[in-house]
Each structure stands twice: as structure tokens, then as C-alpha cells.
């Protein structure tokens, strides 16, 4: 308010009074900010949600050439047990043909830097507009590159999950994962 700059009628030492006012106002502002935090923090992921932030998957039952879909953080994750042919095809593609150049090796390395070309683990969400591509289940259209094919707008991915054709700008994302043993992988 404009006229609040005019000192209110009252006696006392104006300096002391100003100091008191400023100190009280400052403390009040600190308090208001401290009160605001729990209200904001309340909307952050809860402990039970965070507890599911990583999952452990046993990959032994997945035969060569098969793939499974697991749910992780509310999204599908594709785990494909690739054949020798899949791997060879993926490694043979020249970088110049890729809209989002990445080597196949870099896409099959876990957080301990161990490369396991037979296991391709990706988030199954098309990088175009978030649809789930086809090709993970037997009998589904794997698209022209033998990988995955997004039915929404026709993006096609190769056997390394890299974008080859269509509107999607990026390769299918690789989550952080770690093989705890040859059969058990932790995602997240």
C-alpha cells in the first residue's frame, strides 16, 4: 500500500522500531517459506512409489529370439534375447545411415560397463509421441528393419532399437540396468 511508507502515528525511537519491523517481517517471511515447503514436497513421489523405482528381472526363461515386456516406473521395458543374426545386422549398419548415430555396443552395456550383446534392454516408448511400438511379441509386425515398428506414425526401429525410418527423432531409450548375475538384471 502506498501510504504504508508514511510512519504510523506512534512515538518511540524510529530506528529501533524500523529494526523491529524489519526483523519481524524477515522472520515471518522465513516462516512462510518453511511452511510452504511441506505442501510442495507432499506432491513428490512417495516412499512406496520410490521403492518400485528399480525392479529385478530374471531373464533365464527368455529363449533366444524371444522378447518380454516388463513394467518399470509405469512404462513398458522391452527385454530381447537377440539372435546371432540380430546382433550381426545391428553391428553391420554404418553410422552414416543412422538419424541418431549410436553403436550397437554402446546400447548393450550395463552400468558396470559389461557388454552383453545378446541382451537388448530398452524403454518401449516411441520417441516420437509416446506410443508403444509393435514387434516385441511373437507374430507382431517387426517393421522393415526387423526390430520394432510404431503403428501410430510409422517409425521403424532396427534390431538395436535405433530409429531408421519415420518421424521419431531418437533411438529407443536405454534405461540404467545392471546384471547382478548372468540370469538376474536390475533395471533402474
Amino acid at each position: 500500500m502506498a501510504s504504508s511508507s508514511v510512519p504510523a502515528d506512534g512515538h518511540g525511537d524510529p530506528t529501533r522500531r524500523d529494526f523491529l519491523m524489519v526483523a519481524t517481517g524477515a522472520l515471518g517471511a522465513v516462516g512462510a517459506a518453511a511452511v510452504a515447503w511441506p505442501f510442495i514436497n507432499n506432491l513428490n513421489p512417495a516412499a512406496d512409489t520410490l521403492a518400485l523405482a528399480s525392479i529385478e528381472v530374471n531373464v533365464t526363461p527368455i529363449e533366444v529370439g524371444q522378447a518380454i515386456t516388463v513394467k518399470w516406473r509405469g512404462k513398458p521395458v522391452f527385454i530381447r534375447h537377440r539372435t546371432e543374426k540380430d546382433i550381426k545386422e545391428a553391428e553391420a549398419v554404418p553410422m552414416s545411415e543412422l538419424p541418431d548415430p549410436q553403436t550397437d555396443n554402446s546400447r548393450v552395456t550395463d552400468t558396470a560397463k559389461k557388454v552383453r550383446p545378446e541382451w537388448l534392454i530398452m524403454i518401449g516408448v516411441c520417441t516420437h509421441l509416446g506410443c508403444v511400438p509393435l514387434g516385441n511379441l511373437p507374430g507382431q509386425d517387426k517393421g522393415p528393419y526387423g526390430g520394432w515398428y510404431c503403428p501410430c506414425h510409422g517409425s521403424a526401429y532396427d534390431t538395436s532399437g535405433r530409429i531408421r525410418k519415420g518421424p521419431a527423432p531418437l533411438n529407443l531409450a536405454i534405461p540404467q540396468y545392471l546384471f547382478l548375475s548372468d540370469s538376474l538384471v536390475r533395471i533402474g
Binding site: N41, N42, A46, A47
Partner: peptide
């Protein structure tokens, strides 16, 4: 109970 136990500072609110 989940608000009390798991939601960040849910017990406070």
C-alpha cells in the same frame, strides 16, 4: 495411513 507413512511429510499435513 499411506499419507502418514509414505508421502513426503504427509504425516505433517
Amino acid at each position: 495411513e499411506r499419507i502418514d507413512r509414505d508421502v513426503p511429510q504427509g504425516w505433517l499435513i
